[in-house]
Amino acid sequence: MNFDPALILASLPDVATGMAITILMWLGGSFMGLALGLAVSIARRWGGRWARLVLDAYVGLMRGTPFLVQLFLLYYGGPYAGLDLEPVQAGLLGLTLYSAAYFAEIFRGGFEAIPRGHVEAAVCVGLTQAQIIRRILLPEMTLLVLPSLINMFTLLVKETAVLSIITVPELTMVITAIGSANFAFAEATFLLAVSYWAIVEITGLIGRFIEGRLGRYRLV
């Protein structure tokens, strides 16, 4: 069996479609997860005891079970609970619920790292709790967690590979299909690795650019 680069070139259009779907699933699930995670972290902190209890359980569950198992439950178990989803829908929902738990933890850490004095200074000049959350805590927290957010985004790119299990036609599914159709597993695997690596590198570049731009707001 020899390595045949021509095969890679021939399948590039299919790979491009798979990559587009991977990126859509990734960004869609991650940004919805980001928004949900933020809501969860705020409700956990300021929403009272019951909200905290329920949401702690949610976060614990999502972080304590494999993403693969969560997806199976959602896609194959969902219909029993009246939740009949297309693969892409189940994939997006699964990624959102999964990533939201991690994002909520990142945000919690960020809120806790803000010096208490920054809030006391705001209280002393008369800001209300809502104003303090919106104008002081959210922006400061965002600056603190930026590196962790970027890290989480790059981890999530790779988690999208799991979506092939529920037949979402993303990169991993497309490329493994090409590989088995042509008995060219080495070429396919190589291409797969390079594709994810490219996405991760580009994300890292964007992340470092944003971090650089925000450098002057550094905590002092």
């Binding site: 004095g117 920054h118 006391e120 200074a121 008369g126 400061e140 600056l143 707001y217």
Partner: peptide, 19 residues
Amino acid sequence: GRVRRNLGMVFQQFNLWPH
């Protein structure tokens, strides 16, 4: 809050908002 408006506070750690 109303009574606190009579007061200004200056802290050892400055506590400026970095952003």
